[in-house]
Design a binder for these strands. Structure first.
Length: 798
DNA sequence: ACAGTGCAATTTTTT
DNA sequence: ATTGCACTGT
């Protein structure tokens, strides 16, 4: 394929405006198909070839969206319509950008380095801002603040206003300002009434102050990376015109996830050639809560007059049943552009989507564990299995279970490397060296490790800084020359400042990795963790080593810091075979043979908070989330409902999700979990309908969701809260109920414990352990993972 | 300055 | 239940 590029393409000159050339080339292209077009269906091909004018590609799940995007870029390059550096291609995540780069590389045979404008919205924003920083009151070495920095800054501002931080938490202010920034609003543009929501009208004032502080700190937050670009373009038409000339083609991935600021950003840039191609799927818009505007994609044809719209509806990923389930479910949403997925995979033996009821979340985890073992025995690849949960607290149950089972798993999207305290501390040291005005970094580490610089001293530095309008570092430098500080803190502060000055002088001459190590050693930071005898200290030291190691790939400390700020993913080694556990949100864009979807209960999924806060809009977004979940599956989608779940430490009985009603019965099998007898566990509520099909085998595929029992269950929902788990500890009250025969026999609170001190027992979650003491039916057991108090019926004698 | 205690909050997440 | 926080007392 690379022979297409054998002769070096000549860059089209700006005056090369004769469209005839292009269309002739395009025609030739159509007449003689080129290899990279092989295997594209007509719609995909159309999307690849329609490179002139605005184009919206509505790409349903699994319809070859990325392929179209990358082939389109390949096509632009192959037809010499633009040079690599004249293409702007934006994605949301670094992962998507990387994948796109890789695939273009494969397509055109290698070098994609020329595509310097392929990246995330934010990384491209930074790139533009650094070039023109002075025009937006920044220096080109400005710092990018993360959420943590933002919060600390806002907290300071709230305090400075004399407001009660309890009543007006920084978090809330951050969300508010973030929301404004997502909508492209500067402090002046915030609608008046909105400003009053926060702290009796202090909202806008705080926003203004926050922005002012950022300038002083020579810093940007993520929102600014776009917002300041907007300002730059608007205030400097010549610069915008420059970019118009530069970007002959614009491509946007996941357009349904763009917020207003991003939309404005794109529109300003697209005004040049109008060759903008947006790819997205309104049915997969799941980030409304962080500012994404589905409207952007719904409005595309109005925003870009003359736009062509191409629908990709041939799904190459999933079986008929999976697609039918997802499609039927999503039709319950209003306000969509409307697409139908047509299955391209023929499989007469395809499994229907299953819905399984479990007594509680523990049984749910156990059942899924067993099913995974079955799949494993049938030689299924564990990497092709995923568990997609609504909220991350659901993950723990699976982890616990898989640990005891000895099943390999990996959690995708947990706490990130860069978020760890030790990494943030180390970075703060580096930031402070590179950018002395970075007060937030300075504050973070000035007394870490302990240097005897407490609140009192810091307050003096702060006051001096404020009254003289100086960054903290400078204020501190001033102060130590005077007699204002007490001798001890004064010397201590003088010492650190001296060190920083020293490190800064080394910045140019020393290799950055060595300097970094030197900073951590000389500051006493490494030593602090070496002396720390807590269990995680060695791990933290490892992380620091890892941090230094990862700096190797960069050529300087500043470029490394930018990478950290923007590229927040850690490349985890995923060599082993393992089941993936992740949230539905982080599953977008992925696919697996088998997908387990636990926790389909009202309140959890759809999530109560989504309903409370956003009403129908929230519900529809939850439904799209369900759609995303189901369409991740290639061969098997397995849905689970638990009748009882522990939320915030309380057992709550729950009602199956309304989404289950919205699945097409013809493509769904209702089964009960392998280890449940009956499924009528929720006594008194009429029973779960999901166990019923077992006794109702005359017509197992009828729509079970409309039966009286189901209706009753819905009416009764949320009546019982905080109820103990009847099956295990209920005593006489629970007798006569349908319960798990195996476990109920093991004693209740009324009978003396069956165990004795010193006995070896087995627990489903914690594994083997020794009984330390007994109070009634509660045992204190020492497990390998620690000592826990458990109800005796949770363990087995061994 | 720091350690210990009490209290509230607790969806989803990228950049 | 767990965790992170702000405040209090030494």
């Amino acid at each position: 394929m690379s022979d297409l590029f054998a002769s070096p393409p000549t860059p089209p000159t700006p005056s090369d405006g004769e469209p005839d050339h292009q269309s002739i080339r395009a025609q030739l292209q159509k007449m003689r198909p080129v290899p990279y077009m092989d295997g594209l269906n007509p719609e995909q091909r159309d999307a690849v070839e329609s490179i002139d004018g605005p184009l919206l590609v509505l790409a349903g799940a699994g319809t070859g969206k990325t392929r179209v995007l990358t082939t389109r870029i390949g096509h632009i390059l192959a037809t010499r319509s633009a040079m690599p550096w004249q293409i702007l291609a934006v994605t949301f995540t670094n992962k998507a950008a990387r994948e796109m780069k890789d695939r273009i590389g494969n397509l055109i045979g290698g070098n994609v380095e020329g595509m310097q404008w392929l990246g995330t919205f934010h990384s491209i924003g930074v790139k533009i801002l650094r070039r023109h920083a002075e025009l937006v009151d920044l220096k080109s070495n400005f710092t990018i603040l993360d959420t943590d920095d933002q919060l600390r800054l806002m907290k300071q501002l709230i305090q400075a206003q004399g407001l009660d931080e309890k009543r007006w938490p920084a978090r809330q202010l951050n969300t508010l300002i973030d929301g404004w920034k997502n909508r492209g609003l500067t402090p002046q543009q915030v609608p008046q009434d909105e400003g009053y929501y926060f702290a009796q009208g202090h909202g806008v004032k705080l926003y203004t102050e926050y922005q002012a502080r950022l300038k002083v700190l020579n810093a940007c937050d993520f929102g600014d990376l776009l917002l300041e670009c907007l300002r730059l373009f608007r205030e400097n038409p010549d610069i915008l015109a420059d970019y118009h000339k530069r970007f002959r083609y614009i491509l946007v991935d996941e357009y349904q996830d763009t917020n207003i600021a991003q939309y404005l950003w794109l529109r300003l840039l697209a005004q040049g050639g109008n060759n903008i191609c947006c790819v997205g799927d309104d049915d997969q818009s799941i980030y409304g809560w962080r500012g994404a505007e589905v409207d952007n994609i719904l409005r595309f044809e109005e925003d870009f007059p003359g736009a062509k719209v191409i629908r990709l509806e041939r799904n190459y990923r999933s079986t008929v049943h999976i697609l039918a389930a997802a499609s039927h479910l999503i039709t319950y949403n209003e306000g969509r552009l409307g697409k139908t997925l047509h299955p391209q995979i023929e499989d007469d033996d395809a499994e229907k989507v299953t819905v399984t009821s479990a007594w509680d979340s523990e049984e749910e985890a156990r059942t899924i564990g067993e099913q995974i073992e079955d799949l494993q025995r049938a030689k299924h690849d564990l990497n092709e299995i995923a568990i997609l949960v609504r909220a991350s607290f659901q993950m723990r149950e699976f982890e616990d279970r898989f640990i005891t089972m000895g099943l390999n798993y990996r959690v995708i999207g947990g706490p990130r490397f860069y978020e760890r305290a030790e990494i943030r501390d180390a970075l703060a040291y580096f930031r402070c060296v590179v950018q002395p005005a970075d007060d937030l970094a300075f504050e973070r580490i000035v007394n870490t490790p302990r240097r005897g610089l407490g609140d009192a001293t810091l307050k003096q530095v702060h006051d001096h800084a404020r009254s003289h309008g100086l960054p903290l570092t400078e204020a501190a430098t001033d102060l130590v020359q005077t007699e204002e500080l007490k001798p001890r803190p004064r010397n201590s502060l003088k010492g650190v400042l001296g060190q920083f000055t020293h490190w800064r002088t080394m910045l140019a001459s020393m290799k950055h990795t060595e300097l970094a190590e030197m900073i951590l050693d000389e500051s006493g930071y490494t030593e602090m963790w070496q002396k720390d005898k807590s269990a995680d200290a060695p791990g933290r030291l490892d992380n620091l080593k890892e941090l230094i190691r990862s700096m190797e790939e960069f050529d300087s400390l500043p470029s490394f810091l930018e990478h950290i700020a923007l590229v927040m993913d850690r490349d985890s080694a995923q060599s082993n075979e393992a089941v993936s556990i992740m949230t539905l949100h982080s599953a977008k864009g992925l696919e697996f043979d088998t997908v387990f979807l636990p926790g389909w209960e009202e309140g959890l999924f759809p999530h109560q908070r989504a309903l409370d806060e956003s009403g129908t809009r929230g519900l529809e977004e939850e439904r799209r989330l369900a759609y995303v979940g189901i369409t991740r599956a290639k061969k098997r989608a397995k849905i689970y409902v638990a009748s009882n779940r522990r939320i915030h430490g309380l057992w709550q009985s729950s009602v199956p999700s309304r989404f289950l009603d919205e699945l097409p019965p013809a493509h769904v099998d209702v089964v009960e979990s392998q280890s449940t007898y009956g499924g009528y566990g929720n006594s008194g509520v009429g029973g779960s309908i999901y166990g019923k099909s077992r006794f109702d085998s005359s017509d197992p595929f009828e729509n079970n969701y409309d039966t009286p029992g189901w209706k009753r269950a819905q009416n009764n929902k949320a009546k019982k809260t905080g109820k103990p788990k009847q099956r295990y500890g209920g005593g006489p009250a629970s007798s006569g109920k349908v319960i798990d025969g195996e476990l109920i026999a093991k004693g209740t609170s009324d009978t003396p414990s069956l165990y004795s001190v010193g006995e070896r027992v087995f627990h489903q979650k914690f594994g083997y352990g020794n009984v330390k003491s007994i109070e009634g039916n509660k045992l204190t057991v020492e497990f390998s993972t620690g000592t826990k108090r458990v109800i005796d019926s949770f363990v087995e004698r061994h």
